[in-house]
């Protein structure tokens, strides 16, 4: 069985007019154009199976949105291929479009001046949803996303969170097979984010909807995505599960030691470099020492034993690497495990 979505060597170049510098530069730019080519997507390949929920991650300007615009058939690829259940989204746009739903969190597909309900009607009509299905879907969304209170208000009067919920519903009302969510949690408060996550989780659970999710909030990813694709400068850096990402890139852990004051002197001792088996003491303040060690080189139990032996320990804890730390490191230092 071949994958539902297959992206192969995908490239998108943007050509920008490069202005001439110096005197009469702008005049020269008008007549002799020099172009500057920017490869926003530079040979991206991946395959996604039916029912998967994949986090498509990368720093600002990595090429995420551009990839999604090509997968949705909005933008023509410069090179490479995209196939969504065998269809070329650019050439067979209407067929592909009929089975997809899209949220671009920074914009809205809702009809600004009209009540929210009107936008849903429009989606229902455009995708040929039968009246019975429409009613059922709408009821479900009103329920799950709590739209009841503002469904009859003009969209321009909605808060960002309300609007985003409306957008999600509009993107999924016709039960698309593939859903692209480009930053669906941007600007939402904690409660609204949580609601959104629950909704995406619920939708994915049935296994009938394939979801590609782009976000800068890694809590979304930890909660929702079994698999992530990480890109930067238009290239895939990592494709696999979140655990694997951590294991590959988060090679260091931290031992946090709370020291007890010395019984005789009443002073809290400091951990010396000699007693940590070559690990790095990151900080030492008010009786709390943070020791960073490479898990593959230093065994935790040895480190703990050594500390226990030499100091009065009140409490010990190991801080596992979080995704945010891992991703921050990859974004800033590049791909060297």
């Amino acid at each position: 069985m071949s994958a539902l979505i297959s992206v192969d060597g995908l490239v998108k170049e943007f050509r920008k007019v490069k202005p001439h510098e110096g005197r009469l530069g702008s005049l020269r730019t008008l007549f002799t154009r020099r172009y500057e080519v920017n490869r926003a997507v530079d040979g991206v390949s991946f395959a996604i199976d039916e029912g998967e929920l994949v986090g498509y991650l990368g720093p600002n300007g990595a090429g995420k949105s551009t990839t999604i615009k090509m997968m949705t058939g909005i933008v023509m690829p410069t090179g490479g291929t995209v196939r969504i259940s065998g269809l070329d989204p650019w050439r067979e746009r209407p067929c592909n479009a009929a089975q997809m739903g899209v949220v671009f969190g920074q914009r809205t597909q809702l009809w600004w001046d009209l009540p929210l309900r009107e936008s849903f009607r429009l989606v229902g009509a455009i995708y040929g949803v039968s009246p019975a299905d429409y009613r059922e879907s709408l009821e479900r969304f009103v329920d799950l996303l709590d739209l009841g209170e503002f469904i009859d208000r003009p969209v321009r009067q909605l808060s960002l969170g309300q609007r985003m919920r409306g957008d999600i519903a509009a993107a999924m009302l016709h039960r698309p097979r593939v859903v692209y969510l480009d930053e669906p949690t941007i600007g939402l408060d904690v409660v609204a984010k949580d609601r959104m996550r629950t909704f995406v989780e619920e939708t994915s659970r049935a296994g009938e909807t394939t979801i590609v999710l782009t976000t800068h909030d890694l809590a979304d990813v930890e909660r929702l995505c079994p698999r992530v694709i990480l890109i930067d400068h238009g290239r895939v850096l990592y494709d696999g599960d979140v655990q694997g990402l951590k294991a590959t890139y988060a090679t260091h852990r931290e031992l946090v030691v709370h020291l007890a004051p010395d019984e005789s002197t009443g002073r809290t001792p400091a951990v010396r470099a000699a007693d940590v088996l070559g690990a790095e003491i990151v900080s030492q303040e008010q009786g709390v020492a943070r020791i960073r060690f490479e898990a593959s080189r230093i065994a935790v139990q040895h480190l703990i034993a050594s500390v226990n032996q030499n100091y009065p320990v009140r409490d010990l804890s190991i801080v596992e690497p979080d995704l945010e730390g891992v991703v921050r490191r990859i974004y800033s230092e590049g791909l060297t495990p």
Binding site: K69, T72, G73, I74, R93, P94, C95, A97, A98, M100, V102, F104, R107, T108, Q109, I126, Y127
Partner: peptide, 14 residues
């Protein structure tokens, strides 16, 4: 100008 045209371009209608 705002890029909202993406939503018109992603419809199954031309």
């Amino acid at each position: 100008r705002t890029g909202e045209v993406v939503f018109d371009l992603m419809r199954p209608i031309g």
